[in-house]
Design a protein around this nucleic acid. Structure first.
Lengths: 222, 222
DNA sequence: ACTCCTTTGTTAAAAAGATAACATAAATTA
DNA sequence: TAATTTATGTTATCTTTTTAACAAAGGAGT
């Protein structure tokens, strides 16, 4: 009912990840068809058990009441609030290679309350151009732009070799959260949050799961 | 010593993820400087405790012997083996938008034992071109190419609306592992493994962490 | 050669997380 | 209107995972 405060108890990291998954899943639902949804239905879409969903919600007091199913809209609003997506934040992307361009064209930032302010690169040929009306700036202008627009989040999509230097520059400019797409484990001050998006880790996990599945099916031959 | 079999005990999912992180981290080390590494050093790079590292390794019998530090090369080889990266596998990418191109230019596939065989798209203007000597093919040719080269893994980088159909096609073609970059929760048979790379989930997590950090610093006002 | 320090492997304890069981409440049907 | 079904909130139990403690083993220095 309240979905207000974590009540001083620690929220498990995995719960937060799942809340984000719930929200991602819910926002993809056709709104006409799904005005309401049960924990059972939602769980099945993410391959979880209904209890897990309810327990996750319970950390925040729950989002419905006994007997009713959840109202999808209430869930979305509540989850957005918990995840801090109700307050608009400013975002930049550093490194306009393929990956940076991919991110810049990503349409789902605005619905998440993220406002893409500027893009950065060192390549003079790119500087001055725009992607989706967002200008590509010289990396030297970064501190000024971050300060001017009060940017809090930055995505690093530079080559590996430039990642740590970029991070240093971002920290110096006052960035609070780094969304890191480089494989590097960045060194940053404790008050700066780094969210790693190490693609190779996902790929390795997939490889492992494939291998173990095969072993099971093959009767563990080697 | 043996790092051979999981000994019938279940390996925690998080352990696998960490093994991948260890490997990612180790492969970035300058080889001359780091011939050996201790659990303490490795742990600090990923912000873990040394015990965690040793416990993770212990599931596989360990990689060193008491008194010695780990030999980086032994670790790398052992981890690659556990993760199934020692056996070459074939990979394709479906969807040659920015993200697909980013993936295709990703240089770290080969070191992981992944062999990028072909790229696919529906856009006639792209078909026939090449990226890093890998040809872009018509999506209609997918089944034949998968069968011919014995491709096991496919990355989905299509638009959201095409993701499920693409998955269906991949499954029909005999793909065993799907590396899914679309936000959709795909429906697939149980013997097909889906590794989701839901970017928005990472972003939401970052947002949450930023919010809670601020709350702590602000003394939980609101 | 012996002691001290460092380091890993291993086992045991503690903490955390997921699952199940149960109480409560609304809607539907007889 | 009462009974049944379906649903969530909540608490308790059980399982998993992490952390700590300890034993074994090599290397360095005296």
């Amino acid at each position: 009912m309240t979905f207000e405060k974590p009540k001083k108890k620690k929220i498990p990291q995995m719960t937060i990840t799942r809340l984000a998954q719930y929200l991602n899943c819910l926002s993809l639902l056709p709104t006409e068809q799904y005005e309401e949804i049960s924990s059972k239905e939602l769980a099945s879409k993410i391959e979880l058990k209904p209890t897990q969903v309810r327990q996750d919600f319970h950390h925040f007091g729950g989002f419905g009441q006994a007997g009713y199913r959840y109202k999808v809209n209430d869930l979305i609003i509540g989850l957005e609030r918990i995840l801090g997506l109700d307050q608009q934040q400013k975002l930049i992307i550093v490194g306009m290679g393929h990956l940076g361009q991919a991110l810049a064209s990503y349409k789902n930032f605005e619905p998440l309350g993220l406002n893409l302010v500027a893009l950065f690169d060192v390549n003079p040929k790119l500087i001055g151009l725009s992607l989706r009306d967002v200008p590509i700036k010289d990396i030297d202008d970064l501190p000024a732009i971050v300060a001017k627009h009060n940017v809090t989040i930055a995505a690093i999509t530079t080559p590996t070799s430039a990642a740590q230097n970029t991070a240093n520059m971002l920290v110096a400019a006052g960035i609070k959260g780094i969304w890191n797409f480089s494989p590097v484990n960045l060194t940053t001050p404790p008050d700066v949050i780094v969210q790693n998006e190490h693609l190779s880790v996902g790929l390795m996990t997939l490889s492992y799961r494939l291998k173990t599945l095969n072993k099971q099916n093959d009767g563990e031959q080697e």
